[in-house]
Amino acid sequence: MSPSLALHPLVRADGSATFTSNLYTVLAAANGPVEVSRRDELPEEAAIEVNIRPSSGVGGPRERWMESVITSLLRSLLLVHLHPRMLVQVTLQITAEPSIKLKRGVADVALLPTLANAAFAALVDGGLPLERTMVAALAVVREGEVVVEPTEKDLVGCQSVHAMAYSMKGEMLLTESTGRFDLELWEDVSERLRETTMAAMAKAGEDEGMEGGAEKGEPWLRHALKENVVKANAWREGG
């Protein structure tokens, strides 16, 4: 099942997106560039503030850690030097979670790709200047086999979990793993995830030509963004 992405569900935020993966649903809002507090101001680039809000209760150390991971990822995406002494504010609200209680470490890593994709889509929707396009994906190793975009059941009793993000040029932007694995396995996983993420961004028609293109998933990100552009330019057509 390919993940689903809806752009601009919110009214007040500059950019917003709802992203649903096999496991989680995250609602992201991006505001920027906005005024920054004196304390966080950076003289030569925009400050990035990420807030993660769990579906119930208030955030704790786990959320702070995920925020730091997403912040550094977004720093590599945004053209921060265009907006010095300003702030780009990203709020990520988790709205649906797996019903099975997962182990803490597993749940943290499993959530990261959904957060990253939602945050990226919100930035695109908000029209913030970006350096590159990216897609994040999740994989688990279960009984020695790599499962890409796992379901709830795959996560229970898996050996290791890997979250990775790649840019359109195939550069690795994020890698977080937990569990037991060796370098060889990690390389195998990263190659599989690279193929999956590339397929999500692939040009229309290009993936059919590739061997086994169908099983790597449809280019959902490209479809979603294209739809958005078509909608934004609809007024020109009528002219």
Binding site: L10, R12, N31, V34, N51, R53, Q89, T91, Q93
Partner: peptide, 15 residues
């Protein structure tokens, strides 16, 4: 009951 406002609703709400 927990009512914490976030910048989702309006940029005026601070975390």
């Amino acid at each position: 009951i927990n009512t914490e406002l976030s910048p989702l609703g309006s940029p005026a709400f601070e975390v």
